[in-house]
Amino acid sequence: MPEEKKRVDFNADVSVIESADSITEVTNDTRTDFIIDAIKNEIRKLRNDEDFRQEVVDAYYDGRIDHSIAEDILGVEEATRMKLLKESIDRTPPEPQLEDSVPTDEEFYDGKVPTWKPDERSKSASEGT
């Protein structure tokens, strides 16, 4: 079943349209098809662009866009994940029960806390994180 159409009118610089027309002379596309393909390509490019996706995340968390827009660009899974995470911020975790003092390392770990620094020779290779 063909999709519903929306009519779009816009003004564009003559040079841009003439360049498009030159191309379609060669490819034998219609001007409309060429423009629609260009829009689709731009949408696909942006949907997969990490920086743009981050902008969408920021806009959602800031409340500038709603869930359905986030879903359209990021996909259902990612948008739902964000929605659930955002909602969780308003929940309050159970209160910690602080005792008078935190036990010393000796008491808690049965000794001093060991520390780690990368070997000079094998710096980030041994970070293992």
């Binding site: 935190v102 390392d105 808690f108 806390v113 780690w116």
Partner: peptide, 22 residues
């Protein structure tokens, strides 16, 4: 807690604190 690099935060032990708070 064990990371001795300069980028690691110092002065507290979040692991121990979690285990004694909950």
């Amino acid at each position: 807690v064990v990371d001795n690099r300069s980028k690691a935060p110092t002065g507290e032990d979040p692991f121990k604190t979690l285990l004694v708070s909950y």
